[in-house]
C-alpha cells in the first residue's frame, strides 16, 4: 500500500535541521530543529505569527525555506522537482479553510488526485474514496458539492481527500479555527481516530484538550523559534519557559 520508492521504511518520518525562513527582511523561522518518528503525533502551538503554520507549510513546499535542511521520509526537500512531487504524494495536508474544489462533488474531490497522480483506475479510486468518506462519517454526502455542506462536514471531506492519497504523514494547519464551535468536536473526533490508528501527524492547533488526549509531544513556538518541547503531561503541568507559561495562562484560563 505504501508506494514512495526511495523512501526508507525504517528512518524517521521527518527531520528538520537549522531551518531558516525569511519573508523579505522578516525572519519567520529561526534555526528550527525538529525530528518526528513514524507514528508520532506532534501538536504545535503558539501565539499567532510565531511561525507554526510557516513551519508545517515548509514541510510540503507550500513555502520555500531559505536555510537549513528538511528531509521527509528520507527524501531531501530541495529544488529537485522530483523530490518535491514524491514528498507531496506521501504527505497529506488539511487547511484552516478546507480548500475543497468547489466545482467538483465530494466524491470527485476525493478521487481526483488518486486517479491523476497515483494513476488508479476509477473503480479503485472510488472504492477508496467511499471508504474514507465512511471513516469521516459522511458517506451520504458523496454526490453533493462542497458549498452544500456545513463547515465541519467540509473539513471532514478535506481530511478524507487527503487520506485518499494514502499518505504516510498528515499535516493539519489549524483545522478547527474556522469552524463554528459546535462543529469543532466532529472534526477533532476524526483526528483522534486517525491518531489512534498510528498515523504520523503534525497538528498546528489551539485545541489544548486534543493536545492532551493524543499528542506524544507538544511543541511551543514563539517568534519563529521552538521554545519548548515536551510530552503533554510535562508541558501542561510544569512548563520550563516563561513564555510558555504566559501562553498557557492565556489559552487555558477560561
Amino acid at each position: 500500500m505504501i508506494s514512495g520508492n526511495s523512501t526508507e521504511p525504517g528512518g524517521p518520518a521527518l527531520r528538520i535541521e537549522n531551518l531558516d525562513k525569511y519573508y523579505g527582511t522578516f525572519h519567520a523561522l529561526r534555526r528550527v530543529n525538529l525530528a518526528v518518528e513514524r507514528g508520532e503525533r506532534i501538536v504545535v502551538c503558539g501565539p499567532s505569527g510565531s511561525g507554526k503554520s510557516t513551519m508545517i507549510r515548509c514541510i510540503n513546499r507550500l513555502e520555500q525555506h531559505n536555510g537549513g535542511r528538511i528531509a521527509v521520509l528520507g527524501t531531501e526537500l530541495n529544488d529537485d522537482v522530483g523530490n518535491i512531487d514524491e514528498i507531496r504524494r506521501e504527505v497529506g495536508m488539511v487547511f484552516q479553510h478546507f480548500n475543497l474544489f468547489p466545482h467538483m462533488t465530494v466524491l470527485e474531490n476525493c478521487m481526483l488526485s488518486p486517479m491523476i497522480v497515483r494513476k488508479q483506475p476509477r473503480a479503485q479510486a472510488e472504492a477508496t474514496a467511499r471508504r474514507y468518506l465512511e471513516k469521516v462519517r459522511i458517506p451520504e454526502q458523496a454526490m453533493k458539492y462542497p458549498g452544500q455542506l456545513s463547515g465541519g462536514q467540509q473539513q471532514r471531506v478535506a481530511i478524507a481527500r487527503a487520506l485518499c492519497m494514502q499518505p504516510q504523514i498528515m499535516l493539519f494547519d489549524e483545522p478547527t479555527s474556522a469552524l463554528d464551535p459546535e462543529m469543532v468536536s466532529e472534526v477533532l473526533d476524526v483526528m483522534v481516530t486517525l491518531a489512534s490508528e498510528g498515523m504520523t501527524m503534525i497538528c498546528v492547533t489551539h485545541e489544548m484538550g486534543f493536545a492532551r488526549r493524543v499528542a506524544d509531544r507538544v511543541i511551543f513556538m514563539d517568534s519563529g523559534e521552538i521554545v519548548e518541547e515536551a510530552p503533554p503531561e510535562t508541558f501542561f503541568t510544569t512548563p520550563r519557559n516563561e513564555r510558555t507559561r504566559q501562553f498557557l495562562s492565556q489559552v487555558l484560563d477560561h
Binding site: L62, G92, F101, I116, V117
Partner: peptide, 17 residues
Amino acid sequence: GKGQVEAALSLGLSPWR
C-alpha cells in the same frame, strides 16, 4: 482562491494539472 491552488499542490498535482 489561493487555498484551492495550495490544496491541489499539496495533493501532488503538477502545476499544469
